[in-house]
Design a binder for these strands. Structure first.
Lengths: 238, 238
DNA sequence: CAGGGTTTTCGTCTTAGGATCGAAAACGTG
DNA sequence: CACGTTTTCGATCCTAAGACGAAAACCCTG
């Protein structure tokens, strides 16, 4: 009832503390069969030497989306960042010692064929074996991985992890690494094709060193995120 | 590269503006066959007389979750709020005239058998026919509805809209109202039962005024959100 | 109290996507 | 040229959801 006449943004401001807002991104990529995350090593306190997610403070003229894109541009070429989406807000008052900082977390994806130049303090780390991380960044990263795994099932988000053209086996390896278990190349191709997410380029590439049939090259039909509506359980008529 | 040695939260603070953080909730309920949202009518500028979502400023000792629960407690009894989840961050610099206010939006659900006392400026409005809304609150509300509709398909979230016990027909009406199209009572029962989300109480209730077989009462087996893993397309072994 | 209307409930049929398996295709190698 | 290897394709099985209709169980009326 207290806001009957008082719009929230016009209430007396709480000045006993400073509340900041930062944006952070769990940027992941499949490299050499493992799902890896982009982390930079802190030099100063708090949490010196620990590894942290890329990000930084939100500016006054930015949306959280434009802010995270700006800040990630300092780490990786923006064109290599094929997908960015909001994850969640992390707002535990104690999540950062000292000042209050609310974080909007993002999931960022980089295709596996790119190897961007990184600053000296920045490196890829396998999510399965993370180094000591700062603040709640490990939690954020695990949330990011969970989101990715879910979306691999019901969207075409694989396009953001795969190169422009790929063989079905390569795509299977990407999916396997991201999901954490082996998937069948046969089923993967059939499922994605039936959804209209995958199409053959017509090209084939030479067989591997141990022989075998030369694989065909495929590509995703769309490089925008598309959700498979077939998962509506109680479907609309028609 | 600029944050090589500078932790985000230790950068010089931008004092040219005040950035606030508010929490807002799209609280919805099925009443008389329609999906309705809780809105309060603003008295003061900006946007006087327009209808706004419940919420308010984030306090320094709160998470966004505890904040929205505290603020909603002023509108509806907390025990009547059966489900609350984060929706998204809305951060357009122009979303609120004047000060910069970032909003963390939530989806809140109230079961259809409760009719909480409301403050005088607050009322339920059908989402299909909203009055003039303030700021970006209509967008937030439509996002909330979309989230609800998706989750009705692949989770047991219906428990949060339904009373503790209900007939299949009542549940069908709830789902129909929330989804915006008629669903089959037969299929609804079978689908939810097969998932293990629904169970019969053994009780039956008297038939309606126009006769008919007396319906059996059901309940949700769990009142916590559970996701149907059936929708993993490429399932883990086992 | 018998019969018709109503609503719920159950079973069956159909459709469709996903899993599994195995065969065929196309290549290297010895 | 036979053999191993890898990819690709097709056939079959399984499970789940949608559609439909029949049966069950009640009300009301004549």
């Amino acid at each position: 009832m207290s806001n009957t006449n008082t719009p929230p943004e016009h209430r007396e401001r709480d000045t006993s503390h400073t509340t900041g807002h930062e944006v952070l991104a769990g940027v992941v990529q499949v490299r050499r069969g493992a799902l890896k995350a982009l982390l930079w090593q802190r030099a100063r306190p708090p949490h010196p030497n620990r590894w942290a997610l890329p990000g930084g403070r939100l500016h006054s003229d930015e949306t959280v989306e434009s802010s995270i894109r700006r800040q990630l541009a300092e780490k990786v070429d923006v064109r290599e960042l094929t997908h960015v989406e909001q994850l969640a807000v992390f707002s535990d008052p104690e999540r950062v010692p000292g000042n209050r900082v609310v974080a909007t977390a993002f999931l960022g994806l980089v295709p596996c064929d790119t190897d961007p130049e990184l600053p000296g303090d920045t490196a890829w780390h396998p999510i399965e074996a993370l180094p000591e991380t700062a603040f709640d960044h490990e939690t954020i990263l695990l949330t990011a991985r969970e989101r990715l795994r879910s979306k691999l099932s019901y969207t075409n988000i694989g396009f953001a992890l795969a190169p422009p053209k790929f063989t079905v086996s390569e795509l299977r390896d990407i999916y396997s690494a991201a999901l954490g278990y082996r998937v069948s190349a046969t089923n993967l191709q059939r499922v994605l094709s039936r959804r209209g997410a995958l199409e053959a380029t017509g090209e084939t590439v030479a067989a591997g060193p141990s022989g075998g049939r030369p694989p065909a090259l495929f590509r995703f039909t769309s490089r925008d995120l598309q959700i498979t509506d077939r998962f509506a359980v109680l479907r609309p008529p028609g």
